[in-house]
Simulated assay, not measured.
Amino acid sequence: MDIFGSTFDDSMFEEARDKANVPLSSYKAKFCATEKALNDYTSCLALVPEGNLTIKRDVLEAMARCLSHIGQMEQALETVEQLSKEATNTCHLTCILLLKVNIYQYCRDLGNKIIALQQLCCLHPYNQWHWTSLADGYISQLESLSSQAPGLSFLPQENTLDMIGQQQVIQLYPTAPEREDRDSLWLKACMCLLRARLLLRILRNQQSSFVLQSSEKALQRTEEALQHLDPTERTLQLVTEVMGEDLVPEKMREENQDGESLDNIILKNFENRWWNRLLQTGLLGPDGGKLTTDKTESVSEP
């Protein structure tokens, strides 16, 4: 009986010979017009075998992006719905929701974009980037509301969020009669930013190199955005407590759902999971007190 390893060839342990360095040719992606790309993908889809769901999903996703770029939003969303019917796990659902975000972003449908981001936050509650993007969406809604309210003054600030849309963060000085709507949007923006800040602080302890640098920059942008929104210390404390209740290492590890079957996944309603719990603190009630600091009231209209 041969002793284990006794039959190995000596050449396996010899040092590798020096190989001539052959310069690799640079790769250049092929670009073509959107209409031609759509035609090519449509032709490709007809050739995909019925059982090859992976390639079929890739082609349908590419078709949806092409359709959105040429302004055929209804057809793009119909293609996304076709993808949704064939989703079997959380990875598929995540790709579909991100695709919806991109389509709604392209057609400037901010309301549905926010709904898709809310679903992403429910599916991946510990993903800081989804929370930052959702905060960006609420801030964009505040910008839109301020531009429609002639009695509302605001000060534009430099860009602080670079996730989706790269919208400007603003500081609002609300006046009647839209106070409740503006306060709700303002508080939701603070809520998402504080959730993102908590996650970034937790995750940076496990990071290094360029990943840590990216988190540090995102944390700085989040801090700047909160400074512009200017919440009171009481608001910061209450919102942080609510948004940090489930941020414990054990629970964060347990809810890693990447690749899991959709049969056991329930997308909890965003309002019930976070917003309604925040409202129970009474921040927006008649006795909720001030949400922002006094300096916002001392700024006159431009």
Rank of each mutant, 00 (worst) to 15 (best):
E255C: 14
L247M: 09
L279Q: 15
K217L: 13
D263Q: 11
P174Y: 00
C32D: 09
T292F: 01
Y173R: 14
N159A: 13
Q168R: 09
Q141H: 09
V242L: 03
E250Q: 09
L38Y: 10
C190M: 07
L238H: 01
L236V: 08
L278I: 06
W275M: 04
L199Q: 09
N102R: 15
D183K: 06
L278R: 03
L134R: 08
E86W: 03
Y173N: 07
S25M: 09
D162F: 15
D183F: 00
C122Q: 14
Q157H: 08
N39V: 12
A29F: 06
R179Y: 00
I115N: 12
L284V: 09
P302D: 12
W186D: 01
L110I: 15
Y138K: 02
R253L: 13
Q213K: 11
T7I: 10
E74G: 14
D136S: 11
T296S: 01
G244I: 05
N264H: 06
C192L: 08
I70R: 12
Q237A: 14
D2F: 07
T232P: 02
P156S: 12
T240R: 08
V242C: 09
N256L: 01
A62G: 05
A135F: 03
C95A: 12
A76I: 02
L145I: 12
N21P: 05
I265Y: 04
L110K: 10
S140L: 10
I70E: 04
V80R: 06
S300V: 15
D263K: 04
D2W: 02
R277P: 05
L236T: 00
C121S: 02
L93F: 00
G5F: 04
K56Q: 02
I114G: 02
L93M: 06
M1H: 02
E224P: 06
I265G: 02
D10R: 00
C91L: 13
V299I: 15
L267N: 01
V48S: 06
D2A: 13
Q213W: 03
